[in-house]
């Protein structure tokens, strides 16, 4: 029954993606189709799946279904780096941020947060300590971003606000291979360590008695979760809800605790949420693009609530 539902969701996702590709007169404008439409649609499909995978890694790592890239400071790290670039570097030195600089900045911020996290994880590898460190990092990065906003002009604030909305429109033909490659790599990693993640969820003692290297497994999960979220944030801006909600819905719908199944189902739900949110963001209001973040939360929230209430 659950597998059938996910299959139905997969079919729906592909249907929406196909509909989006054929929407309007895109096929009459080949340049527009290849340069804008196809990267966006594939970006939403693959990007949503990557964010969902990132969510699976982080929720398993922290044994907490509320964990996500926002909680361990990765997205706030990228956001702080962008704020530094927009509010400080540009105002101080008149340095204009191009697309490449934006990606590099966000990536730098996300990886700096990841390095801090990994550095601290060396001495304190217990999930609760990691979670606490991540939350503290998030608060510190968030506070620094707020402070920077105080010295920003209205124009810069607007630019920052647009960046922080997140959008698959930013996926280009050039960046698409990196997103697809990353997704394939993360999926392979997730499937490879899925049995380890099964054991890890049973608790430290049980996992260790089964011969599992806790440290190694945690590092793989941190790296997988963080790299996926960091790269997507760098390319598309912070897209907050999908990484949290897709694995959550998949977990609620599955009866099995198998990570192999959870990974595949989460990928499908991630793609569905992202593709649907992108489709609705473009077509819900005529000639007015909506925020993907807001639309994904509006779709994912009720689904999540439904699954929780159904379980209760």
């Amino acid at each position: 029954m659950k597998s059938r539902l996910s299959l139905l969701i997969l079919f729906l996702t592909l249907l929406i993606a196909g509909l989006e590709l054929y929407w309007g007169d895109a096929w009459e404008h080949q340049y527009l189709l290849w340069e804008f439409r196809i990267p966006r649609v594939i970006g939403a499909l693959v990007g949503g799946s990557t964010l969902a995978l990132s969510g699976v890694f982080l929720q398993t790592l922290f044994r907490n279904p509320l964990a996500g890239p926002f909680l361990i400071g990765i997205s706030p790290g990228a956001t702080l780096a962008m704020a530094l670039g927009l509010f400080w570097a540009e105002q101080q030195w008149g340095w204009l941020l191009g697309t490449t600089e934006q990606i590099l900045l966000a990536l730098g911020g996300a990886f700096l947060a990841l390095l801090l996290q990994l550095g601290l994880a060396r001495k304190h590898s217990h999930p609760y300590q990691l979670l606490l460190v991540g939350m503290v990092l998030s608060f510190v990065f968030g506070a620094a971003t707020d402070l920077l906003q105080n010295v920003a002009s209205a124009e810069r604030l607007k630019m920052f606000s647009l960046w922080s909305m997140g959008s698959f429109e930013r996926v280009t033909l050039e960046s698409l291979p990196s997103i697809v490659g990353l997704f394939i790599g993360l999926l392979a990693l997730a499937l490879m360590i899925s049995t380890r993640m099964d054991a890890y969820l049973l608790g430290d003692l049980y996992a260790q008695s089964g011969g599992l290297s806790l440290k190694k497994t945690r590092h793989w999960m941190i790296a997988g979760g963080a790299v996926g979220a960091a790269w997507m944030t760098a390319i598309c801006g912070p897209i907050s809800f999908i990484g949290l909600v897709a694995p959550h819905i998949a977990r609620e719908l599955l009866t099995s605790a198998s990570h192999r199944k959870l990974i595949l189902h989460s990928v499908v739900w991630g793609a569905f949420l992202a593709t649907t949110a992108d489709f609705l963001a473009h077509h819900l209001m005529q000639q007015q693009l909506l925020q993907v973040n807001a639309v994904s939360a509006l779709i994912g929230g009720p689904i999540l609530l439904w699954s929780l209430l159904k379980k209760a």
Binding site: H29, L32, F36, R37, R40, L96, H282, Q287, Q288
Partner: peptide, 27 residues
Amino acid sequence: SVILGIEEAAQLLEENPGALWIHPGDC
């Protein structure tokens, strides 16, 4: 403000060759 996606904006330019382009951000 009317907010469009980049593709829709690009289509406007494609359909209106020779347009005058003003206020290109802060460039």
